[in-house]
Nucleic acid binder design. Structure first.
Lengths: 403, 403
DNA sequence: TTAATTAAATATAATTATAAACTATAATGT
DNA sequence: ACATTATAGTTTATAATTATATTTAATTAA
């Protein structure tokens, strides 16, 4: 089965130009036909014709008149953000987060539903469906004004089939998300791994904005990366690109849940940090967390560090340095312009970020590699669900490549 | 400075279709206009028109008549391989290898020139220029029948500027290869890092053929990888993607030349293997290489292993397992369909390949990841120079994306 | 021989971008 | 106030292509 060959045709030409114009409006905000022609190098009549069609489909609207510096005032065009909407879902281990946004990614409504323990495939799909109906009815938005449903979930996702192949934290396999939701709602459905969705979210709306080659690292219970190359999510052959949690950085390191030894995850994930702190406490290190062994989690350690607890600060710093080793390996392989760190552990940015940066500075091979930008996610907890929104928008605004 | 926006135009449409047709002829060999129309889904008149132009430029020729199953015999079209040629250079540490091929990558002439010790930038450029004149005159090929010059060289290469930023083995910096050669020869010049060139060579002509997402790992004095995604060389932001030789796999491992500890290179490169064997000999291990410490290099170890020397076999096996750890890390990050191993160490394939595969089988996260194909380079020593040829051909046959 | 079949060329139509001319509108200078 | 100039946007005509339909050419098989 050959992949469809992209040939030049009138259709392609037109849809390419329509897409160029649409993206120009999206990126520049309110812009006149004349300015679109200038920035895209399309001729004014071409722009006028395609703008007319876009106005008819109500994808864009004429808003106001701009200022003139001598001459007719430009009529400014913007996306018709009131008209169309997108739904995003984040399927976590214990909660389903659902978001309704406009076409610019501005949030209209956010809801959270608990996911019962030992849920089945059908149960989860039902929960997704009812949550979508609920948010849609609450906000009274016609179904045909919703463009699509994006879903970010942990584990391994077959994006082409729209199937969650394995979701370890829910103990589920082969959930046919796309099929079921497309049948129920008759609209575009995109399913993606959480870290990869996240990275697209940061690219579109967050701290990756303006770049086209970033890596987003999700440090929480596990560690996963989403790799963006040329503005596209990079998935690899079997949808497991970016599984850096199981990158071996110490052949003689601690045993990992995956069976190997010295995976990055055993050094820098949330659980690894908690474990390290507990170990140090047992060894008799002094800390304000002494005798609170049962209450300790990531947030507690972070608060203790903020309160000046040296042991907590030290443990977080160390995690940052280990993470830095993994990040440096990643820089030497993928060499992105910017790395965005998100997930639970990134909350403790004051104690993590600097040691990651220092480690890169020490270890990277070249001056340019040392200059790789490392920043914290803009969205924190909401990174995945924003990414789910971006999944749909990136389809909507994609430049066509087949006819 | 915005990147040029790709807009639809008649030019683009036509050049896209011309490129589609040209690539169809390249891939399928002798093919009729009618079959081109069928495989590309272009209409017969479109194909006829563009074929006429391609015949006029002499890029393709009508060869023979095919067989008919009732009806007019098809006239078969092929690339005019006799007409156009490509030159490839491999700049090694001690030798310059130069190759002249036809447009299908078939070798017409190969020459090797020694590179003097302590050569200067100018000296190296002169050597490149004279080697090109020599091979051109030897084969009596007009300059306007040579499409371009591809160059693969070790170290860090700025592909856009065509500058070798740093070539450690030659102790040279900032060699302005592209500028100088383009001025001298008035033709296309492409410079690329050796491992990346190599990977393109394997993709076009070698053991990556038919794939569009492979990783080629060059294991020799150092370890470097070339990553191919969607048929394109992936370079990263600062041209250092694939520098896996300095991927840390053991935080407490041996010191590397780069200053860090436990880089993959300290476990699985040629020098690392020699060093390990010497160490074992000093510890008193029995081997046919005993008391030959001064003669030992990679080739000697390989021959000893072939001759049944257990220590040599063991050392090579171990290197394969360490390499496997690095490769597994790479699989979890880049997740290619196929991995091609080349470079000096890959000569010892009988003792390396199986242990790499076993390690992946043991360590990879998912069944599909375990199934990543691992094979040895088709070209061995000539992998880089074949890649240099592929650099030019990939430009020549590139599908246009800007006008 | 003749009908059917396949290949390729030709004529004509349809689609869309492009160029040039034109209309609309506003700011500015006198 | 009014001409001049500048800018925005539309209309019309034209050019560059691909798409469709038709024709011609060359074979094979009955």
């Amino acid at each position: 089965m050959e992949p469809n060959i992209v040939t030049g045709s009138f259709q392609l030409m037109k849809s390419l130009n329509r897409s160029v114009i649409l993206n120009t409006i999206r990126k520049k905000g309110a812009i006149s036909r004349a300015d679109i022609a200038k920035t895209t190098k399309l001729t004014p009549p071409t722009v006028s014709n395609l703008v007319k069609e876009l106005l008819e489909t109500e994808m864009i609207i004429e808003t106001s008149l701009g200022v003139s510096s001598g001459g007719r005032k430009p009529t400014l065009l913007t996306l018709n953000s009131e008209m169309f909407h997108v739904i995003g879902l984040d399927i976590g281990s214990h909660h389903l987060k659902i978001l309704l946004t406009d076409i610019n990614g501005r949030i209209r409504k956010k809801q959270i539903h608990p996911i019962p323990d030992s849920i089945t495939n059908e149960g989860l799909l039902d929960l997704m469906i009812t949550s979508i109906y609920t948010i849609q009815k609450n906000e009274q938005i016609d179904r045909d004004k919703i463009i699509g449903i994006g879903i970010g979930m942990h584990g391994i996702v077959d994006v082409d089939q729209g199937v969650s192949i394995f979701a370890p934290n829910l103990k589920l396999k082969n959930i046919r998300v796309k099929d079921v939701l497309e049948k129920e709602f008759q609209m575009m459905v995109q399913v993606e791994n959480d870290a990869r969705a996240m990275s697209l979210g940061e690219l579109w709306f967050g701290n990756g904005h303006g770049n086209d080659s970033i890596v987003c690292i999700n440090v929480g219970r596990g560690i996963g990366a989403g790799i963006i190359i040329n503005g596209q999510v990079f998935r690899g052959e079997h949808y497991i690109s970016g599984e850096i949690g199981h990158m071996v950085i110490d052949l003689n390191g601690p045993k990992c849940t995956c069976g190997n030894y010295g995976c990055l995850q055993t050094f820098a994930s949330g659980p690894a940090i908690v474990e390290r702190l507990n170990k140090e406490l047992k060894l008799g290190e002094s800390s304000i967390l002494k005798n609170k062994e049962n209450e300790i989690d990531g947030e507690v350690i972070y608060q203790a560090a903020l309160a000046g607890d040296l042991l907590s600060q030290n443990v977080l710093n160390k995690a940052g340095r280990y993470l830095g080793v993994g990040v440096t390996n990643l820089i030497h392989i993928v060499n992105p312009k910017r790395i965005v760190i998100s997930g639970g552990v990134s909350n403790a940015k004051e104690f993590i970020l600097e040691s990651v940066k220092e480690t890169i500075e020490q270890r990277a091979l070249t001056d340019s590699a040392k200059q790789t930008e490392v920043i914290i996610s803009k969205f924190g907890e909401d990174a995945t669900v924003m990414g789910a929104i971006a999944l749909i928008l990136s389809q909507l605004f994609a430049t066509p490549s087949n006819n």
